[in-house]
Nucleic acid binder design. Structure first.
Lengths: 160, 160
DNA sequence: CGGTTTGTTCATTATTATTTGAACAATCTG
DNA sequence: CAGATTGTTCAAATAATAATGAACAAACCG
């Protein structure tokens, strides 16, 4: 059991390792999802550890992250006490989970910050004030647009 | 000259430091852009170094990165031999430059990889083949959609 | 030219993020 | 319940990334 990764598996894992990088997630998270994504059978921690040659700690933590935004589904396997997982393959679910867990929390802080900035604006020296105000307004415009793009992008992912 | 950052500047810099993080750019790049963004006057390396308390090397490298996707504009200042810069404030230009320099190059590699994967598919054991094929096709679907979303998102940024 | 000034590069150092593995807690099993 | 199995946590080790600063090259200036 626990053969090394096949060439195909390596390629797929590599894809998700890159995606993990873009999303600022640890490499191991990409590896885990990659292996699960291409595996016809549910896998448990032992399987994943030996396939990827990573520690139990990384595996456990990585699965925790993947579960946190629903990228992985627990599966019951008869006669085995260990936890098994399959990759969630519906993109919409994963993205929705990711946005909810990792993106939205940060957006709120952005709004708080903006009101803090507006109060600081009052203290600016008059000769710079016009310029600085224009910049802050521009920033608010960007923030607003980014907020509008997000729901659209989510909607862009059609149900299968 | 070269006073420390004001509260307002700190807030603005902090915004761009976070954005730099999301884009996997060094912190100093965010700092540099932030200071320039909120500065009514063009700034040179010395100004930026002393404002941000970072080294000349970081400043030079950071500006190089910012220039590479047009986030910063060189400005001529009469009677001063040093290079001065202002922040490019038109979001569309920055995003276009960033996508061209940092995003498109990677997309091409993705397509190469996909054809490599397809050839590996042939070697799969028959009983797994159906499943694996379905997964690869799904991956291609995702890739295609991401490619379609990008131009739309670019277009979403209206000219002022 | 010879001496400055300015910006870049890159080996070294510092910092930050990730992984490891052993200790622990929880759950099962006979 | 005692022993075994399984998953989690977290301090320490390691690896990855960014910043520093001195050496360098290029452009300027008298």
């Amino acid at each position: 059991m626990g053969a090394a990764l096949s060439e195909l598996e390596k390629e797929v894992v590599d894809i998700f390792v890159r995606i993990a990088g873009v999303l600022s997630l640890p490499r191991s998270v990409g590896e885990l999802y990659g292996v699960l994504f291409i595996s016809p059978e549910p896998m448990c921690i032992d399987d994943l550890m030996s396939k990827l040659k990573i520690s139990k700690g990384s595996t456990s933590q990585g699965l925790k992250i993947l579960r946190s935004f629903g990228a992985v589904n627990p599966v019951y396997v008869a006669g085995d006490r260990r936890d098994f997982f399959t990759a969630e393959a519906e993109l919409r679910k994963i993205v929705a989970g990711f946005v909810k867990e990792q993106v939205y929390p940060h957006l709120d802080k952005g709004k708080e910050r903006m009101s803090r900035i507006e109060s600081l604006l009052a203290e600016e020296a008059p000769e710079q004030k016009a310029f600085v105000t224009e910049r802050i307004e521009r920033l608010q415009g960007w923030q607003k647009r980014a907020g509008a793009l997000l729901p659209f992008a989510l909607n862009f992912i059609k149900p299968e």
